[in-house]
Amino acid sequence: MSGPVIDAHQHLWRVEDGYTWLDDPALKPIRRTFTPADLRAQLAANGVDRSILVEGGRCDPDEAAVLLGYAAATPEIAGVVAWADPEDPGLAETIAGYRRLPGGHRLVGIRSQVQAEPDPFYLDRASVREGLRVIGSLGLAFDLVIRADQLPAAARCARALPSVRFALDHLGKPPIRAGEIEQWAADLAGLAACDNVTAKLSGLVTEADWESWTAGVLTPYISTAVDLFGVDRLMFGSDWPVCELAGGYRRWVTALREVLPERAVFGPVAARTYDLGRE
C-alpha cells in the first residue's frame, strides 16, 4: 500500500506557556521549547513525511491557537488533536472556535487528560459521554490517553458510543518496566473488540526502562496489540519529544521497523483514523 509515512503522535510546546508537568526533575532533558523546525528535522532524518500534532498537557484552550497556527505554516503537520474538556457545556462552540482559527481546517481530533483523572469511572460519566458524542458528531476523533487501569472503562465507553472514532494512545500505558502483561492484555482485549477503536504504537519506550529497553523487551506488548487489533487498526507514533527521555526518535522507529515492518502501521491507519483524506 502506497502513501505517506505518518507519525500519528508527536508534540510541540513552549515551556513558558504553562506546561507545569515538565517541572518534574526527571524530565529536565525535554524541559525546553520544541518548534516546528525541530520537528521537520526529526521527520526528515527518519523518513517520515507527515505527523499528527497532539496537545501537550497544558489543558488550556488557548493552546489550540498555537498548535493550529503551527499546522497552518508547516505542511508536514497533517492534523492537530487539540485539548478540550468533554464535560464543557460549551464544547460545540469551543470546537467551532478552533475551526475558525488560522489552521482550523487541520483540526482532526480532541484529547483530554483522562490519565490524570483519579476517578477510574470517569469515562462512565453521562456528562463525559455526552461530550464525546458531540466530538464524534462534529467529525472528530477522540484520543484516549489513559492509564492501564482505565482500559475497562474505556472499553465500556467505546461500546456505548459506536459512532465515535477513538484512538488509544500509547497502547494504554502497559506496565513494561515491571514486566507485567497479563492483566493489561486482558483489559486491552475488551477495548480492541470495539471496531471504532484504533491504537497507537507510541509511548512504549517511556513505559519501559529508559536506559536499558530493547526491541526484545517491547516485542511481547507489540505482538499482543497485533493479535488483538490487527495491523489494520494500529499506527506508528513517536511520542516525540517525550521519547527523547528513552533514546530518541531514531532508536524507537528503528526498533519498531525491526519488530513490525508492516506498511499499514506507518501511514494508512492514521490517515483513516483522522480522516486526512477529507482535505
Score class of each variant (00 low, 15 high):
S127C: 07
G216Q: 10
V48E: 01
F142L: 04
C59N: 15
P102T: 01
L168Q: 10
P174W: 00
L245D: 10
T74G: 03
G97M: 00
V242Q: 10
T198D: 10
R111S: 02
R257Y: 04
D169Q: 07
Y19D: 11
A153T: 14
C157L: 05
P75N: 08
Y249N: 13
A84L: 04
V205Y: 08
H11P: 01
A225Q: 12
E76R: 02
T214S: 06
C59W: 00
G190N: 08
F236P: 06
L168I: 12
S223P: 08
E93L: 03
F229I: 06
R106Y: 06
G109M: 01
A82E: 07
A225D: 12
Y249G: 04
E87M: 05
Y19P: 15
V226G: 15
K28L: 09
I146S: 14
G190K: 05
E279P: 14
V265Q: 09
E130Y: 05
A215H: 13
R263L: 00
I222P: 15
E279G: 11
P174R: 04
V128G: 02
L171E: 08
G57Y: 06
E182I: 09
G277C: 03
V80Y: 02
V259G: 09
G267E: 05
A193Q: 09
V114D: 02
I30Y: 06
V265A: 06
A92S: 13
A72D: 02
A96M: 00
Q115R: 12
P120W: 01
E117I: 10
P86C: 02
D49S: 05
A45P: 10
T198W: 05
S51Q: 08
G3N: 11
F166P: 07
W21G: 13
G97F: 01
V265S: 04
R233I: 03
R156S: 12
L107C: 07
A160N: 13
L171R: 13
P174L: 01
V205G: 14
P25W: 00
W83H: 12
I52L: 05
L201P: 15
A178F: 00
P102E: 01
W252S: 14
E87R: 15
A255P: 15
L144A: 04
E180V: 12
S137C: 10
E180N: 11
R177W: 00
P36T: 11
I110E: 06
G103W: 03
R147G: 07
V269G: 06
A41V: 14
A215G: 15
D119W: 00
A255W: 08
P152T: 13
A84M: 03
A126L: 07
Y19E: 09
R147P: 06
R263Y: 00
G237A: 07
A8S: 11
P120D: 06
C59Q: 14
R133S: 12
D227P: 14
D62L: 08
L132M: 12
D232Q: 15
R99I: 02
G57A: 11
G69S: 10
V134M: 02
L204I: 02
F34Y: 14
L107N: 03
F142M: 03
D85H: 04
I176E: 08
R177L: 01
V54K: 11
S137L: 02
G104C: 07
T198F: 09
A26D: 14
A71L: 09
G109L: 00
L218R: 11
T273W: 00
